[in-house]
Design a protein around this nucleic acid. Sequence first.
DNA 1: CGGCCGCTTCTTGCATGCAAGGTTGTATGC
DNA 2: GCATACAACCTTGCATGCAAGAAGCGGCCG
Lengths: 222, 222
Amino acid sequence: MTATAPAARRAYDAVKDRILSGSFPAGELLSEVEVAHELALSRTPVHEAFLRLEAEDLLRLIPRRGAVVVPVPPHEAADILDVRRALETAAARRLATGTPSYAAARERLAERLSALATEQDGHAAARDVEAFAIADEEFHRAIVTASGNALADRFYATLADRQRRMTVGSVGGRPEHLPVLVAEHRRLAALVTEGDAEAFEEALVSHLEATHDLLLGRGGGR
Amino acid sequence: MTATAPAARRAYDAVKDRILSGSFPAGELLSEVEVAHELALSRTPVHEAFLRLEAEDLLRLIPRRGAVVVPVPPHEAADILDVRRALETAAARRLATGTPSYAAARERLAERLSALATEQDGHAAARDVEAFAIADEEFHRAIVTASGNALADRFYATLADRQRRMTVGSVGGRPEHLPVLVAEHRRLAALVTEGDAEAFEEALVSHLEATHDLLLGRGGGR
DNA sequence: CGGCCGCTTCTTGCATGCAAGGTTGTATGC
DNA sequence: GCATACAACCTTGCATGCAAGAAGCGGCCG
């Protein structure tokens, strides 16, 4: 019944997950045959997976050597934050447009954000940082998606991947501060719903930094 | 002497060029064997090219049917402009940072932008719209590149590809207006060099629309 | 005349074979 | 002891083979 996923996809998912989770450490030299054997596949699907991952800049293929896991570049965290700010702000700006279709989109978005915030209340109360991180990602992505810009939406997804790669390992404590983030989410939701793009950007900037610091565990001395 | 490019790369370049140039029209159903035969290659490198192009959302692979050229979505032009505004503004904002390394980057950028503007003068005088479009792309990309955000830079490159796909075909006339664009470039260059991110954004918005209209030939009447 | 079933043909998914290129380790000459 | 050349090994790049799945066409039956 359950159609088993194509081999190429399994290979892609498996390798990507190992990279993002750090199970394949940066700098590691991977061999197609090796990975193929581990996954009980032939070289072909693994080769295809490597190609895709190279396109995402997670692997670097060296012609007759193998594939190295590219390390997280020095200011990747700051880069991601910058781009997220830019894209989310652009989304809010577009959503603030007077066009009726955007008003409807704001309506739908408001509902979804509200639901997500409620869900986050639960995760915060349960001190479940991991579940919170996922819901947090969904929250922000929902805003970008709602703006209807497919290009921005796709790119934003790759940013989320990379961010995941950085947050694992440093599971940053301080779950007691999660409720603050939810409150900020509610404020962001209100602003984007009202169509106040300027205030949204302002609130977003401090929120992104707070989230970043918190999830990375730099939330202020020990 | 000249090492011939790998087959996979040739296939990728060839197919991508045909898609972006419109030689493979949207909706066309491509077969690997067919393309492979045309390029005098085996199916393998063509298959790999298809995979990469699917990752770029230029092809859609249908499991055992073939690959269809994805049509340009309805508001892709507006989407591209929105994202370009967002990314270039973010780049200018970062470049405006006080950090010494950014001051040096602004310095280098200023020189490059100046050189490109001069080159554009030549293309404008020669009424060479195509060459101008290329130099225009380089100009804007240089700003993003200078900001040092690798993520933004890579994404920006894919936007340029897609923009190319839209501008061909409508080689929009009115080359007599090109000098105006160069003047705007010089102003943008000055603003980003001075570190005035706000004024840059404002100038950028109108400039992007002007360029867009001009290159797409919607520059008013006829 | 209309609908359905099966066959033929096309497509890709994946495995494997082969060869070229690169790296490493060793042995030899100095 | 050091440098160099050679050989063995390991890697991928690409071609091809084979089979599974999808679509379209023809014929047959109702």
